[in-house]
Design a protein around this nucleic acid. Structure first.
Ligand SMILES: [Mn+2]
Ligand SMILES: [Mn+2]
Ligand SMILES: [Mn+2]
Ligand SMILES: [Mn+2]
Lengths: 217, 217
DNA sequence: ACTATTTTTTAGGTTAGTCTAAATATTATT
DNA sequence: AATAATATTTAGACTAACCTAAAAAATAGT
């Protein structure tokens, strides 16, 4: 299993969440920042190895084997993110890039010992669930802030976009996982929201609200 | 800097210790388990990048830049070995293979934070010194057990061969870093040694003695 | 000093992973 | 249903990192 193969599997896994159809080569190319023709090549190789199902022009989907392989990479990625944050004092906007490298280290023992060292965390620093060694993943009940009605009280439990830019914006606004948010009003014109967070009132655009996962309390 | 380039630099660095002449392509190929022709290719590329000095048929040596790069890889390798042993309960014969992968992770912040997390260790689990972030390396005063005269008392401070086979042999004989060893006798015929370790008497071959670093007390 | 052996380099080929440009299939529009 | 637009695949080419086999240089033996 090469790094490249692992990265393709991971991208296909992420794109598969939600959409029940085959994932298009264009979508994969877009996510991988590569070209559709490159994706076609790789997807054919993954199909030969039994990791994906692929028929020309039909898009691609993971086999059980392929899904498990992807989950083990996601597991490593998220465990390393926890390690970097909790043990090495990285901030939540710094962990992802390094985890992109660490996720490819091959040692089951390392992964399992790391998990134990971290005390079996169930979520990564961005609120995403960590698959266990069997590939089981906790289903978390969360919705986007943009989909909650005005008047509700919610708690921030995750981010959809985990880019440094967005995370640093949240830091600046003092919004973190666990923050209590009151939705005071929703503006019909642009779907912007007026919120109260830690007794501070603020307005956020729909784009912000559509990237924050919350649970209702 | 690719993994392959990094591995070549590391091998050239290790071979450079002791020998003041240029390192031959054959020696490198042997160490890398590759072919001399492949080494020639790579060495030419490294020379173009200013990491080694290379003249046809003359062997190769590291530039300051190349040496520093190699030292940073060795630094990461040894810090990760300490991490695996101290924090994740790996044994000293298990750490090397995983560190071979981890040494290639690129993040200065990660390396420095890891070093801090480990409380600035100066040696790895096999007694080898850990370069600091400037590439400075502590010169340790140690000699091979095979070079010490009979009658001396020494302390085991390192291993030359850190293969699992050798390390597991030492475990079985209850020899570890820090063990006090009395050299009772040396057999002229085969250079084997009779030792006392932890009040147990044993005989070891010259091959064993030539792979154990000790300091005299 | 000359020849034989060994070491090292060069020449040419392979595979993985990428790309661009062209061909083909699918989907949307009239 | 035919045509236009878009999506996808194929064809051919490139680079990095390796290889084998042949050529050339260095070293050793007489
Ligand atoms: Mn991440
Ligand atoms: Mn990756
Ligand atoms: Mn090692
Ligand atoms: Mn390596």
């Amino acid at each position: 299993m090469t790094y490249s193969e692992e990265n393709y599997l991971k991208v296909i896994y992420h794109l598969s969440i939600g959409s029940s159809k085959g994932i298009t080569t264009n979508a994969i190319a877009n996510e991988m920042e590569s070209k559709p023709s490159s994706v076609t090549d790789m997807v054919q190789k993954l199909a030969e190895k039994g990791l994906v199902i692929y028929k020309k022009y039909q898009g691609v989907s993971l086999t059980d084997n392929g899904r498990f392989t992807a989950l083990m990479i996601v597991r490593k990625h998220r465990l390393w993110e926890v390690f970097l944050l909790e043990k090495l004092d990285f901030s939540w906007d710094e962990v992802h890039d390094v985890a992109e490298q660490l996720e490819h280290i091959k040692s089951e023992k390392l992964t399992d010992k790391l998990e134990e060292f971290l005390d079996f965390p169930t979520e990564d620093p961005h609120g995403d669930p960590i698959p266990d060694r069997e590939g089981k993943i906790k289903k978390v009940d969360k919705k986007l802030l943009s989909e909650v009605e005005a008047g509700k009280k919610v708690i921030c439990v995750g981010v959809k976009d985990s880019s440094p830019a967005f995370l640093q914006y949240l830091d600046k606004q003092q919004i973190a996982l666990g923050s209590a948010i009151d939705i005071i009003a929703k503006e019909d014109f642009d779907m912007s929201l007026t919120l109260r967070v830690h007794d501070r009132q603020m307005t956020v655009s729909n784009k912000i609200a559509a990237n924050l996962f919350v649970k209702t309390v």
